[in-house]
């Protein structure tokens, strides 16, 4: 019997909550499992924003050192988002420390790093049109679309990262899609999808 993805997600969340609670009691093995689970995600998030492997590795280690020493401050169910927040702050600190080579005004927009993330060379024509439409969205909606669909973050992680509630993220996502519908247009959708959707119901 195939595993229900929703149940698998719930089980995975429960496992993380359990590991976080053990790590908060000082269990290094539990934290080690959390490290293995999150390291690649955090590394990717940092790498997209510093574009340098060794620097990203250093910053990523800093994030986990800080997480380990401050783990008692985090709620059991918001660990992932908390890690991303630490990473964001660490990246900002990194740019501030190197402000002689970086425009400091750009540091605050650290989440909008789209040009470092997308492989523009291989974009299909309609993907380019869609991305152009995304670039016309209000900044918050752009960030939600980018973090969720291109970088693969969970709603809870985005919520923690931009200091909003999960419900607000769903609303932002909905509004972004509504705006994309206006900008990108229904004409770009394959007609058969509408037909099948309307025929079924």
């Amino acid at each position: 019997m195939p595993e229900n993805p929703e149940n698998a997600e719930k089980a995975s969340n429960a496992a993380i909550i359990y590991l976080v609670s053990k790590a908060k009691d000082g269990n290094a093995q539990a934290f080690s499992q959390l490290y293995d689970f999150y390291f690649d995600k955090i590394f990717k998030f940092i790498f997209y924003r510093v574009s340098h492997k060794e620097t990203a590795e250093d910053l990523c280690e800093d994030v986990f050192v800080k997480a380990w020493t401050k783990i008692r401050n985090v709620g059991d169910d918001s660990f992932g988002g908390w890690l991303y927040s630490i990473a964001k702050n660490r990246i900002i600190d990194h740019y501030r420390q190197n402000k002689s080579t970086v425009d400091i005004s750009e540091v605050e927009n650290i989440l909008e790093a789209e040009e470092n993330i997308i492989e523009n060379a291989n974009l299909q024509f309609d993907q380019k049109i869609l991305l152009d439409a995304v670039r016309k969205l209000p900044p918050e909606q752009q960030i939600v679309i980018q973090l969720k669909f291109i970088e693969g973050l969970e709603n809870s992680e985005i919520a923690e990262l931009i200091a909003k509630k999960e419900g607000a993220i769903r609303v932002l996502q909905h509004r972004a899609i509504q705006n994309l519908q206006k900008l990108y247009g229904e004409k770009n959708l394959p007609e058969k999808i509408f037909k099948s959707a309307n025929a079924e119901h």
Binding site: E57, V65, F149
Partner: peptide, 28 residues
Amino acid sequence: QTALKLASIKAKEVPIPTKRKLYADYEP
């Protein structure tokens, strides 16, 4: 459909990082 299209946009390759587990030297 939009979500699937956005998710299909290829992100840049990320190099394989070296895990150092530096946190092991610290204590909460």
